[in-house]
Simulated scan of single mutants.
Amino acid sequence: MDYQYPISLDWSTQEIVDVIKFFECIEHAYEKGIERKQLMAAYRRFKEIVPSKAEEKTLCNEFEEVSRYSSYRVMKKAMASDDVTIVKM
């Protein structure tokens, strides 16, 4: 990883850690696959910190720009089916 995660200086240290964990889950989905349950838990926590769709889109676009990993595509795949256990891009 040769990039920085998009964060807000308004967040607490724990919130920053949790947002970074979500983006790490996105990375895992592309690199080796991740359990859907773990990914969904990280996304729920991310949405607690970033409830605004506009802010979510901005952060995810910034992340995709530096990493080339699409949070949108990963979450779309994860939400498409409840019977999938591993999300792999």
Rank of each mutant, 00 (worst) to 15 (best):
residue 19 V to M: 06
residue 19 V to D: 01
residue 19 V to I: 08
residue 19 V to Y: 03
residue 20 I to V: 14
residue 20 I to L: 00
residue 20 I to M: 06
residue 21 K to S: 02
residue 21 K to C: 02
residue 23 F to A: 07
residue 23 F to D: 05
residue 23 F to H: 05
residue 24 E to I: 13
residue 24 E to V: 12
residue 24 E to S: 09
residue 25 C to K: 11
residue 25 C to S: 14
residue 26 I to S: 10
residue 27 E to T: 14
residue 27 E to L: 13
residue 28 H to G: 08
residue 28 H to M: 14
residue 29 A to Y: 14
residue 29 A to N: 08
residue 29 A to R: 09
residue 29 A to L: 12
residue 31 E to H: 13
residue 31 E to R: 15
residue 31 E to Q: 15
residue 33 G to K: 00
residue 33 G to C: 02
residue 34 I to T: 12
residue 34 I to C: 13
residue 35 E to C: 09
residue 35 E to A: 07
residue 35 E to V: 04
residue 35 E to N: 04
residue 36 R to Y: 02
residue 37 K to R: 08
residue 38 Q to K: 08
residue 38 Q to E: 12
residue 38 Q to D: 11
residue 39 L to T: 02
residue 39 L to Y: 06
residue 39 L to V: 01
residue 40 M to H: 09
residue 41 A to T: 11
residue 42 A to L: 05
residue 43 Y to C: 12
residue 44 R to T: 10
residue 44 R to L: 05
residue 46 F to Q: 04
residue 46 F to A: 09
residue 47 K to Y: 08
residue 48 E to M: 03
residue 48 E to C: 02
residue 48 E to V: 10
residue 49 I to W: 02
residue 50 V to G: 04
residue 51 P to R: 11
residue 51 P to M: 05
residue 52 S to E: 08
residue 53 K to T: 09
residue 53 K to Y: 02
residue 53 K to P: 01
residue 54 A to L: 10
residue 55 E to C: 02
residue 55 E to R: 03
residue 55 E to I: 09
residue 55 E to V: 03
residue 56 E to W: 07
residue 56 E to C: 05
residue 56 E to T: 05
residue 57 K to V: 10
residue 57 K to T: 10
residue 58 T to A: 00
residue 59 L to C: 04
residue 59 L to D: 00
residue 59 L to A: 02
residue 59 L to E: 06
residue 60 C to L: 05
residue 61 N to E: 06
residue 62 E to I: 04
residue 63 F to A: 10
residue 64 E to P: 03
residue 64 E to Q: 14
residue 65 E to I: 01
residue 66 V to S: 14
residue 67 S to Q: 07
residue 67 S to D: 09
residue 67 S to R: 08
residue 68 R to Y: 15
residue 68 R to W: 15
residue 68 R to K: 15
residue 68 R to F: 15
residue 69 Y to I: 10
residue 70 S to Y: 13
residue 70 S to P: 03
residue 70 S to M: 12
residue 71 S to I: 05
residue 71 S to A: 15
residue 72 Y to H: 11
residue 74 V to T: 12
residue 74 V to C: 13
residue 74 V to G: 08
residue 75 M to D: 00
residue 76 K to E: 13
residue 77 K to D: 12
residue 77 K to L: 14
residue 78 A to P: 10
residue 78 A to C: 01
residue 78 A to Q: 06
residue 79 M to I: 01
residue 79 M to E: 07
residue 80 A to K: 03
residue 80 A to P: 01
residue 81 S to P: 01
